[in-house]
Every structure is written in structure tokens, then in C-alpha cells.
Nucleic acid binder design. Structure first.
Lengths: 241, 241
DNA sequence: AATAAAAAAGAACGCTTGATTGTTTCCTGA
DNA sequence: TCAGGAAACAATCAAGCGTTCTTTTTTATT
């Protein structure tokens, strides 16, 4: 056999992209082998190279396109909103909704940066800076306008984004709380945090002791989590590309 | 040559553990080869097997021991603190200080869970549940006591822990802000978030454009910001645990 | 119908991986 | 002092890796 019946380039390209996202999300970039990916799409591993230069570039393409999508949608969403508080809420809502909808892409973009080669990683980090700037500017303007109590906009930006992004570590569609419920909860936490509870900002910290050491076993409660097929192991090839 | 002069089992075991943490932190578990690890310690790869059963168990040992340490220290730190607000602040301060001090271990424990085999992963997740319970119980009691405005303690727990954990994505010792500075800032955000800014919690969301899936081509920055604050800005993304 | 292009198969490559084994050297305690 | 155990080496294994190349089949174009 060679070319299969009904085969089509653009359709295969899209299938590879989707399968790549799925497998990298599930197993990680290093752990995903190209044979595994090819099997998922129904190809031989060698045939994949009609669709990307090498494994590294597949990852880079996926992450870069995701970041472009994230940024453009965020900027579009915030375009008309001027008031800092409204802008903050809009950002939080957008970020949460986006992250709940496209968890696999987000997860990859956050986790696999380390697997990118230097130049690629620099590109992605620059994109991320730009995205973070949307929030940071909002916080800074709000602080200048006296709406927010934010002494360190950059730190607050990192903190807030970490908090919001964290939702895709546990959220699964169909749970007790709807997306809009969660947006309400998270937004409340964010806005409360930056509009200043006086007692909070003032307080240094109430800690007396520092010591440690004590053993404690046991555990409770279950929670849904990702799974791994304990199969493939991989290497990170230095000479690879 | 065989046994090297001055070689000592317990010392080598410790060296392997440390090198393992270092290399997994730097390259990831999958990407770290045992030959790389052996070279770091000054051994041949085969010799490593005197110190662990296999690569998977090395990872598991590292993560499990880290979680045990985290939990026991946290429980010790919170032992005497009864008041919900004080307890919340103490938890935040502990978590931040711990994560700023042992970033490599924390990073591994959060990132490499997917690389653990099913049974091992279940053990670690149970430990994490227990740790999260410390915060969740505090939030729940504070809410019952009317000190906090927290409708969903579990969600708030995830959100807060993600935010706090995120600090080790960018914090590097020696930056402009001290550990205590950062603890103050983060604690302010946390306490503000749960002590309820009325306007925040009430507001549903001020968004008119709901469709996050609307296509928006390209991306134009009205205000792209690339402020380089010394070195504090760095590498990894704001993701959570 | 003839031909070119596209799509995929399939075999092969050089290498690295985690893991195993047998052997040699060093250290230590009776 | 000298055996016996601890510690590490050295060589090896099969498996799997990313990648390349050639061949074959299908589709599209003329």
C-alpha cells in the first residue's frame, strides 16, 4: 500500500495537529513518540514528516498558534472597555472562559515551554509578556486612578494570572458549578484582592514559629486527575534538530 | 577500577537525590537520562541501581518525601493558630516561604505528577488533598464564623493555592523585593479576596461580548509593554498547581 | 487516456535509552 | 590481618527513538 483511498492533505494536517495536542496533553511532549502520534492519526511515523519539519517544530507550531489566538481574542474582548474595574472583570472572565474551553492547549503552552529550544522559547515568552501586559496595564491604571490598592502591579499580575490559570488543573465540564458560576467566584476573589481589604494589606504576618519536623501519614478524598499510559519513555535529543 | 577511594554509600545516596532534583528541575523527568544523572554524581549509570529500584522509583521517592516534608511542616506551623484569619495568614506565609525556599522540589512535585505511574500518582494526590485540606478547613470555619465571605471553600482553596504556588514560576532570590515583601503582597491579595469586597462578590460580570469563540484576526497592540524589571521577570509561565 | 502531483507506506539508519550482569576494588570490623 | 561485604566499573542487551529515503498507490489535471 502507499497512498490510501480518500486521503487528503489538509484534513490529515489538521488531524495531526489535533492528535498532537491530545497526546502531548496526556503524556507530555517528551513522552509522546512520533510512532504513537502516527498511530493515533492512522499513519506510519515517517509519513508525518510531510506535515512538519521535526518534532520540535510541531510543538512550537502548536504553542505559537495558541498564543496568537489567545492574545488576539483577549485584545478583541477588552477593546471597548475603558474603566479599570470593568476591564479587570472582563479580563478575568475572558481568561477563565478561555482556559475552561481550551484546557489542553493552555496546559501545553504552560507546561512544555521548557521543551522548546531557546529561540522558540524566547518567542513564546515574548508573547506571554504581551498578554500579561493587558492585565498589568489595567492594574497600574486602576491604581493610579485610586480604584485599586495595588502596590506592585507586576507581582499582582503574576499572582492573579496564576490563580486564574489554575482553574484548568481541576475544572472538568459537567461539574456541579457552571462556567459562569466559577467566573463569578474567581472574579470575586480577584476584585476583592485588589480593591483592598485594609486590614489585609496592612498586616505583616502573624507567624511566631518557624520550626518543623513531625511525621504524618494518611490522606483523604479523591479527585479526578489526568492519567498516563505507563508506556513510552523518551529522550530529549540534543542532536535531533 | 571498581570501588573508588573514599566512597561512601549514604553520601552517594544523598548526592544522587540532590542531583536528581536538580536535573529533573532543569530538564524534566523524561528528558533526564540516567547516564546524565550518573555523570552529575560521578558514577557509571549502572551503579545508580544500588540506590534505587528504577528511574520511576527515584522520581516517586523524591516527590513523596517532599510532600511528607511539606505537610508535616505546615501542620506544625499551624498547630497553635485557632483564629481563622490568623490561620489563613499563617498558611499563606508558610506556603510562600516554603515555595520560595524549595522551588525545585515544589516544581517537580507539581509538574511531574503526570510522569508517575498510576499507583504512585494516587499516593501523591492523596497527600496533596490532605495539604489542601488545611486551607479548605480554615476557609470553611472562617465562613461559618462570618469572618470570610466564601461561598465555595473548595474552589477558593484551589484558587488561592494556585496563586500562591505560582510564585515559584518567577521568583528568584536576590530580586528587588524580599521574601517578606512578597509575603505581604500576596497575603494582602488573599485576605482581600476572601474577606469580601462587596461590589466584587455581588457583580456577576460586566461583559457584553460573550463569544470568546468569535474569530478575531491578527493582533494589534495599542500598548504592548515590555518593561524589564531587573531580573525578576523570568522563564516560566504563571501556572498553578 | 496519459501524465503529473500528492499522499502515504514501509524499510532502514544511527543512536540513545533504561536496565542487567559479572567483575574488580576498596573499606571495615572482628 | 584478612575475610566479607559494600561500592563502583565495564560491558552488554533489547527496545525504542527521531529521522531519512525509496517505492507505491491514489487523486487531479490535461
Amino acid at each position: 500500500m502507499a497512498r490510501t483511498i480518500g486521503s487528503n492533505g489538509t484534513r490529515t494536517a489538521e488531524a495531526i495537529r489535533q492528535a498532537g495536542v491530545k497526546l502531548i496533553y496526556k503524556h507530555g511532549y517528551e513522552a509522546m513518540s512520533l510512532r504513537q502520534l502516527a498511530a493515533e492519526v492512522g499513519l506510519q511515523s515517517g509519513s508525518l514528516y510531510k506535515y512538519f519539519e521535526n518534532k520540535q517544530n510541531l510543538l512550537f507550531d502548536i504553542v505559537r498558534e495558541h498564543m496568537e489566538d489567545l492574545i488576539s481574542k483577549a485584545e478583541a474582548d477588552l477593546a471597548g472597555v475603558a474603566d479599570p474595574l470593568a476591564r479587570l472583570k472582563a479580563f478575568a472572565a475572558f481568561h477563565l472562559r478561555y482556559h475552561m474551553t481550551r484546557m489542553a492547549h493552555v496546559f501545553i503552552a504552560n507546561m512544555e515551554i521548557r521543551s522548546l529550544e531557546d529561540e522558540h522559547r524566547a518567542t513564546i515568552i515574548a508573547q506571554r509578556r504581551r498578554y500579561e501586559g493587558l492585565l498589568e496595564d489595567t492594574l497600574r491604571r486602576g491604581a493610579e486612578a485610586g480604584v485599586f490598592e495595588v502596590r506592585e502591579p507586576k507581582v499582582a499580575t503574576y499572582a492573579i494570572i496564576s490563580m486564574l490559570t489554575g482553574i484548568c488543573m481541576w475544572y472538568r465540564p459537567g461539574g456541579r458549578l457552571s462556567q459562569e458560576d466559577l467566573i463569578g467566584i474567581y472574579t470575586g476573589l480577584v476584585v476583592g484582592g485588589v480593591t483592598g481589604a485594609e486590614e489585609a494589606v496592612a498586616a505583616p504576618l502573624p507567624l511566631e514559629a518557624k520550626a518543623s519536623m513531625a511525621t504524618s501519614p494518611a490522606a483523604r478524598t479523591p479527585k479526578a486527575k489526568t492519567k498516563t499510559t505507563g508506556k513510552a519513555t523518551a529522550k530529549r535529543t540534543a542532536a535531533g534538530a
